[in-house]
Computed example of a mutant assay.
Amino acid sequence: MTIVSHRHKFIFLKSRKTAGSSVEGWLAPLLGQRDVVITSDENRRLPVFSTPHPVTRFAAVERPFKKVLRLVRPGFRLDQHSDAVDVRRVVGEEVWRSYYKFSIERQPWDRLLSLWSWRQHRLKREISFDHFLDRIERNDGDPLVQYWSNLPAYTDEGGSIIVDRVLDYAHLRAELSGVATQLRLPLAVDSLPKHKSGIRARSHGVESLSPAQIKRVSHLCRAEIELFGWKEPACSEPA
């Protein structure tokens, strides 16, 4: 979800396959009635039903009402993975400048493997990792590869980072602890839940990638690799 917390003056921009659902569950208990929580349509909070942030009580009634609200209520013009530029436009420059904005990123070889596994599971389709990369390269609109890049979650149209901090998924607990300290949030990383885990087979780790696959991912994700200075993973197979 995208979270705009007026109570604690922060904006969390959810990226894909970076434990975003776990982080939203971690943050949810802190949120107040004025905070904007933009999640999936069925989970969005309505002003008249006092629905808790993460859960819908009256789905059959709420869903059609929410479709109308998306046309008239600014927060409903966003979605759970809204681009940073869209969130900035909706909240306004004053809030954007004064609130602490953060997202999460994951080194791309591991992230795309995770996205590949998750999309196969969710869409009930089987596809090889090479064919998954083929579809990304073709940009053919296949739901398997839609929104495969996280760059829009924290950069502008020119590719410059516009949030205050992009947390490193590889050190997420330490990074979140730093955010909690900076914002004085009464949260401990020990309470971070684990959502959407256990989908990817252990045999589908980064070490399973061939040199050619590593190079393909490097080419697709060269922008974020340059932003964060990631190095290609070692591969035991000869090139």
Rank of each mutant, 00 (worst) to 15 (best):
Leu185Arg: 07
Gln182Cys: 04
Ser103Glu: 10
Arg125His: 06
Gly158Trp: 00
Gly229Ile: 09
Arg34Thr: 08
Tyr154Ala: 08
Asp83Cys: 06
Pro29Arg: 01
Asp140Trp: 12
Leu78Ile: 09
Ala174Asn: 11
Arg173Asp: 08
Lys196Gly: 09
Asn139Lys: 09
Ile161Trp: 04
Val166Leu: 05
Gly159Lys: 06
Ser208Lys: 06
Lys194Ala: 14
Ala19Val: 01
Arg165Gly: 04
Trp96Val: 09
Glu175His: 01
Leu13Ile: 03
Phe49His: 15
Gly229Lys: 11
Ile225Met: 14
Arg111Ser: 04
Ser15Phe: 04
Ile162Gln: 01
Ile3Tyr: 09
Val68Asp: 06
Glu157Met: 00
Asp168Asn: 14
Asp79Ala: 09
Lys66Leu: 09
Arg222Gln: 15
Val37His: 14
Ala223Gly: 05
Trp118Tyr: 15
Pro233Glu: 12
Tyr99His: 15
Asp164Gln: 06
Pro108Glu: 07
Asp134Leu: 11
Glu42Cys: 10
Gly32Leu: 09
Val23Glu: 05
Asp86Thr: 09
Trp96Asn: 06
Arg106Cys: 05
Glu232Gln: 11
Tyr100Asn: 00
Val85Lys: 06
Thr2Ala: 07
Val87Ile: 15
Gly75Asp: 14
Leu113Lys: 09
Pro193Gly: 07
Arg7Trp: 03
Gln120Arg: 15
Gly32Asn: 03
Arg216Ser: 08
Asp190Leu: 03
Arg44Asp: 02
Pro74Thr: 05
Arg77Cys: 03
Lys196Ile: 10
Pro47Cys: 06
Ser191Gly: 08
Tyr154Val: 10
His219Gly: 15
Ala28Phe: 10
